[in-house]
Design a protein around this nucleic acid. Structure first.
Length: 389
DNA sequence: AGCCTTTGACCAGCG
DNA sequence: TCGCTGGTCAAAGGC
């Protein structure tokens, strides 16, 4: 079965893979591989995020901070100039970000070139692309993420600015690299909450979260993990997953693995695509956990992997991937109106700050809509760095 | 003993 | 209606 993988027109989504794949990933370096895949991959070493980024954007003198760089990359239609800094994953054709759902299909190909790699764009379906290691669960549960959920903001009631403040603080604590700090500023509430709190009930009904795990991350020190470890499990999100299937998908050269949340009654599933190296190229979450994350002990197991993981299943993979890297976050909407609505709602609320920050030109959306998404991207990246460090 | 991964087969949706 | 593809099931085996 699954062999016919020839070429797929560009009608399908997840193409991120292409970017994050091999090209850049030399055998050994699980995570450094690609902080932002495409670009970083080229570099044989893993410089700091900023350095990497800077290299990626030779032209952009203006972009100094990570966030700036990122913003720059995303912004401008000229993005075409930008190397594949972010593996662009188009989960559904084009970008949700742009909102130009229209001929989404063919645009997919376009995106790959024009958009920053790593940026996952999901269109139709509400997808959210996260960097590898980041726990989707955390995101979902995190208050920040709540933006996607109906109850969103409710629990926190924190203003965007406040969130920002928090984030900043967090970043400082996290000792994230200066780059991270730089990017922090712009971080949105989403990020803030995400990093700071994690206890929110999940509210999304069935949102799909796409996690792109490019894999190279910020350059931490975790490059020693064997590929095997990397390959075992999907990103760690604090939940336990059981693999129930694997299949070679046509659009992708890599096999796609299907996981279910092991929690009884929990409908959450996720699809993980890995590159030949074993690196996760894309993760798509579907559904929402209807339960709390596993207890610390288990959780520790997963998360613990970040530091030195236990061993098997776990999350070694995620840990390694989590490294920091990923930069791709994409959020769009799919079936989840709620998410969408919320997201937009939020954007309206908190954009002010961001507006000046960057224009993600991924597509052109009015300032109104794009913000949340853009923000998420930035935030996400940033957060990842913080977490990793 | 329990849980997870692997893998082939089956099923459903779509063009 | 047929074929293709993606997603899921379930048995077998491993840790």
């Amino acid at each position: 079965m699954g062999e016919s993988q020839e070429q797929k027109p560009s009608s399908q989504p997840s193409k991120t893979v292409a970017v994050s794949r091999p090209t850049i990933t030399p055998p050994p370096r699980p995570f450094t591989d690609a902080l932002f895949n495409g670009g970083l991959g080229m570099m044989g070493f893993s410089p700091g995020p900023m350095t990497l980024v800077s290299n990626l954007f030779p032209d952009s003198d203006e972009l100094k901070t990570f966030s700036q760089l990122l913003a720059g990359a995303m912004a401008s239609p000229a993005a075409g100039k930008i190397p594949n800094f972010f593996p662009l994953t188009t989960t559904e054709g084009q970008g949700g970000v742009s909102g130009s759902g229209g001929g989404g299909d063919d645009t997919g190909s376009r995106f790959r070139h024009n958009k920053p790699a790593g940026l996952v764009i999901a269109q139709p379906p509400p997808m959210f692309t996260l960097p590898t290691g980041l726990s989707p669960a955390s995101l979902l549960e995190s208050p920040g993420f709540s933006v996607f959920s109906p109850i969103a903001q409710g629990p926190f009631g924190m203003t965007h600015q406040q969130a920002l403040a928090q984030v900043t603080a967090q970043a400082a604590q996290a000792q994230c690299s200066s780059a991270a700090a730089a990017s922090l500023a712009p971080v949105s509430a989403f990020t803030a909450n995400m990093t700071t709190n994690q206890q929110m009930p999940i509210s999304l009904h069935s949102s799909t979260v796409t996690v792109n795990e490019p894999s190279d991350a910020c350059q931490s020190d975790h490059r020693s993990q064997p590929a095997s470890l990397i390959v075992d499990k999907p990103a760690d999100d604090g939940y336990n997953w059981r693999k129930y299937g694997q299949k070679q998908v046509k659009g992708s050269e890599f096999p796609r693995s299907y996981y279910k949340c092991t929690s009884p009654g929990c409908p959450v599933k996720k699809k993980v695509e890995r590159s030949i190296d074993g690196q996760v190229t894309e993760i798509i979450y579907k559904g929402q956990h209807n339960h709390q994350p596993p207890p610390p002990s288990k959780h520790a197991k997963d998360t613990g992997s970040l530091n030195g993981n236990p061993g098997k299943q776990g999350n070694s993979e995620s840990a390694s991937q989590l490294q920091c890297g990923s930069s791709n976050i994409l959020m769009s909407k799919k079936d989840q109106e709620s998410s969408q609505a919320t997201a937009e709602h939020i954007s309206g609320t908190s954009d002010s700050e961001e507006a000046g920050e960057n224009e993600v030109g991924v597509d052109e959306k009015d300032e109104d809509e794009p913000d949340p998404k853009r923000r998420c991207v930035k935030s996400y990246i940033f957060v990842l760095c913080a977490l990793l460090n």
